[in-house]
């Protein structure tokens, strides 16, 4: 039993990290008032870019860095569409998602199913032998630790710094932020680009860290789960991190249960995260706390000369 839990917890980050990175990116973006439906696309692009570069150059670090840049670049196109051209955010997000999926599919085609040497777990002797939590805490690759750092850093940025104050103000009330001298468009573009970068990193984790191969449909809806996770986490980066680990733990548990012969309806149990999220939405709507958390200007294009 102890063995089972140790290895279950140890494998949780592999499922949780992509969700955590993407949903924290989306939290940042939505806190700046931009609804970003493109995560699935940035992640696919990131996963493909990281895999292809790691395959050709043999260096996962370069692959990961390129994935971050690729995600950011695609997000910048989305940002140009919604912040400068004031496009409908949902439709523009879906379109960017398609562009990302499309590029990943087309460019990555020749590299499908070619496995490579990916990112390896850090070797921390002794500590990783601690029962239950040892593998979870001390036998992971560097991105896992980085993700936790990013989560804390993002929380600090949003809640404790003037830069974060500006981002939040733009998402809550762009007209007031504008009057206060905040450059609304710039803040939103930065938040969008950062969210693309984080989603690209999430994609890179999928291909370079957790599977060491690129296949079609590698992201498999994780971008959408990340989007739901933002709502589940009530727009808080730390809660998004925790939520991702919760969802990841469920995802990691099910194949293990099946493997040891527990007759669990894994597909039905996999529904739980989605049903949880819907329940959270419903509870929030009923208790009226939704107004207290969701960025008030989410999804609304800002034009200074509109009559506010």
């Amino acid at each position: 039993m102890e063995q089972f839990i140790t290895s279950w917890l140890g494998s949780t980050p592999a499922f949780a990290i992509p969700l955590a990175l993407a949903s924290m990116g989306l939290v940042l973006c939505e806190r700046a008032g931009v609804l970003n439906m493109g995560a699935e696309g940035y992640m696919a692009l990131g996963a493909m870019t990281a895999a292809v570069l790691t395959l050709t150059l043999g260096n996962p670090a370069i692959g990961i860095a390129a994935a971050v840049l690729a995600g950011a670049a695609l997000a910048l196109i989305f940002g140009f569409a919604v912040v400068i051209m004031r496009c409908e955010q949902i439709l523009a997000g879906l379109a960017t998602m398609a562009v990302g999926l499309g590029i990943a599919g087309v460019v990555g085609r020749p590299y499908v199913h070619k496995s490579f040497e990916g990112l390896q777990p850090l070797d921390i002797p002794l500590l990783d032998q601690i029962p239950l939590l040892g593998r979870l805490l001390f036998n992971q690759d560097i991105l896992v630790y980085l993700t936790v750092l990013i989560g804390v850093g993002l929380w600090f940025l949003l809640e404790r710094t003037r830069a974060g104050l500006k981002i939040r103000a733009v998402g809550e009330d762009p007209a007031s932020a504008d009057v206060a001298g905040v450059q609304v468009q710039l803040q939103q573009l930065m938040a969008i680009t950062a969210s693309g970068a984080l989603c690209g990193l999430a994609g890179a984790y999928l291909s370079v860290a957790s599977s060491s191969v690129w296949v079609d449909n590698m992201v498999a809806g994780r971008g959408w789960i990340a989007l739901a996770l933002v709502v589940f986490a009530r727009w808080d980066p730390l809660k998004a991190l925790a939520g991702a680990f919760l969802f990841g733990a469920i995802e990691a548990l099910l194949p293990r249960l099946q493997a040891i012969g527990v007759p669990a309806p894994i597909y039905l149990m996999n529904m739980l995260p989605y049903l949880f999220t819907i329940a959270v939405l419903l509870i929030a709507a009923w208790s009226g706390t939704k107004k207290g958390v969701e960025p008030a200007a989410l999804g609304k294009p800002y034009v200074r000369q509109d009559r506010h």
Partner: peptide, 15 residues
């Protein structure tokens, strides 16, 4: 022109 979900200090800090 105050952001409702910030404190007054934060609103000044913003500007």
């Amino acid at each position: 022109r105050l952001v409702d979900r910030l404190t007054l200090t934060e609103n000044l800090l913003l500007a």
